[in-house]
Nucleic acid binder design. Structure first.
Lengths: 131, 131
DNA sequence: TCATGAAAGTTTAGGTCTAAACTAAAGACA
DNA sequence: TGTCTTTAGTTTAGACCTAAACTTTCATGA
């Protein structure tokens, strides 16, 4: 079954990522938030949750820790919080993002460019079909 | 990046699985152990951990709950524990496994047979390259 | 206007997972 | 035999994640 393979690949890359990010004291979840907010500041917590496919309760908890470490700030605005990187958060983001992309690219290097494109296309079809 | 797609597909299928298994009061982690032990009884905890790509500490915790619910039994043997399904565990296993396989097959049905085979082949190459 | 309801965020209980420290049982070898 | 190391399992602290209950704030329409 393809699902088992997909699980294994996910687990392995996820673990490699986790170990890599530990160098900056970042967890995978925190990196996800950092990357998302870094890519478009001013998002609300709910928007971040939706885009990462996690609950808003989870985002709230992860943000508590990241705010505590001075990487992200919540700017209240009516009933929402708008999220921004602090200067420290921006510095980490600028350093981690390319490094993380390099790690992923290295992990996928067993596949040729064409094969990677094939894989991407198949996963995209699947993703779309899953709503 | 293909990795983002893979993450999304994993998350979506994982959530769907979790919701489906809730009907039997099973978590995804518990189902993993149940399926592994059900497929070859007498395994040690370390063997289960290795085959699921998780730590032995994690397996120990999950087993505590499953043993508490009467699905699995530990049979001490020297310094290892051999794992077996109880009759109740076997009953759940026999019922859940086909249902779970049907769910996965349904979730992957947006891809043709050939496409699924392609996907499986690409993931297998990737998996092997990841040690 | 104001009551009702929907939406954003927070909190909590409970299961998952890891890393690391710990215990106990084998095995190995001088 | 006695010590030394390895291996299996357990425990613990800490982060993650969800579901569900809760609070606050906004929006809507009678």
């Amino acid at each position: 079954m393809g699902w088992l393979r997909l699980m294994r690949v996910y687990q392995k890359v996820d673990r490699a990522t986790a170990e890599h990010l530990r160098r900056w004291g970042l967890s995978v979840a925190q990196f996800g938030v950092l990357a998302r907010v870094g890519a478009s500041e001013g998002m609300t917590q709910q928007q971040v949750a939706d885009s990462l496919l996690v609950t808003k309760g989870n985002v709230c908890q992860v943000l508590d820790r990241m705010e505590g470490r001075g990487w992200i700030s919540r700017r209240p605005e009516g009933r929402t919080n708008r999220l921004f990187l602090t200067s420290g958060g921006r510095r980490v983001f600028d350093e981690v993002l390319p490094s993380q992309e390099a790690l992923i690219s290295e992990r996928f290097s067993a596949l040729s460019k064409g094969e990677q494109e094939q894989l991407r296309a198949l996963l995209q079809m699947l993703d779309r079909s899953l709503g």
